[in-house]
């Protein structure tokens, strides 16, 4: 929606996508790397936070290390008239990480609402899924919980070019 970044923003993205340097003045270290004044780097990072290019700055835990071993992708067939209103409400549940509307692909795929649910066990995930089902009520015309069994590839999204003007 907001278009792409300018070349300087991209250079900051590339310099930080591996993480922030663990030094007392991390933004100054980034500034040195990209050859800009630290104030400008901090201004641009604040702007990217405000515009949503940066979701947040912080830590991403390994959910397996914290004991969240069960990861269930719950998929729901919700009436088109109510899916947006209900999707927003499901998104506010603290155990739901990602919540999206996606297209149905009939006849092979009927589900239009996706909510990723994390728990310490499958029982816990099932209890949380039951909470979602209760919230959806009769707008829910069917759902499944699809568990992951193996991570086959997890490279993350990376920009490769420092700039593209």
């Amino acid at each position: 929606m907001t278009g792409s970044l300018d070349a300087i923003d991209r250079s900051i993205v590339v310099a930080t996508q591996g993480g922030l340097p663990l030094t007392p003045r991390p933004y100054h270290a980034i500034a040195e790397r990209v050859g800009l004044p630290a104030d400008e780097v901090m201004e641009r990072i604040k702007r990217m936070l405000a515009s949503g290019v940066i979701r947040r700055i912080g830590a991403v835990p390994n959910h397996y290390a914290l004991g969240y071993r069960a990861n269930g992708m719950s998929v729901w067939d919700v009436s088109d008239e109510r899916v947006d209103e209900l999707g927003v409400r499901i998104g506010t549940l603290d155990f739901v990480s990602h919540c999206y509307r996606r297209p149905r692909r009939l006849p092979g795929w009927r589900y239009n609402l996706f909510a990723m649910v994390h728990g310490k066990s499958r029982d816990e995930v099932q209890r949380k899924v039951a909470e979602i089902a209760a919230l959806l009520g009769d707008a829910n015309r069917g759902h499944e919980v699809i568990y992951s069994t193996r991570i086959l590839k997890k490279t993350g999204l990376r920009l490769t070019k420092p700039s593209r003007v």
């Binding site: 993205v13 930080t16 993480g19 922030l20 290019v53 835990p61």
Partner: peptide, 15 residues
């Protein structure tokens, strides 16, 4: 225990 520490980018907004 942490897989990442730093800015989390919204890939959608990057073009």
């Amino acid at each position: 225990i942490l897989t990442r520490f730093g800015p989390l980018y919204n890939a959608d907004r990057m073009g």
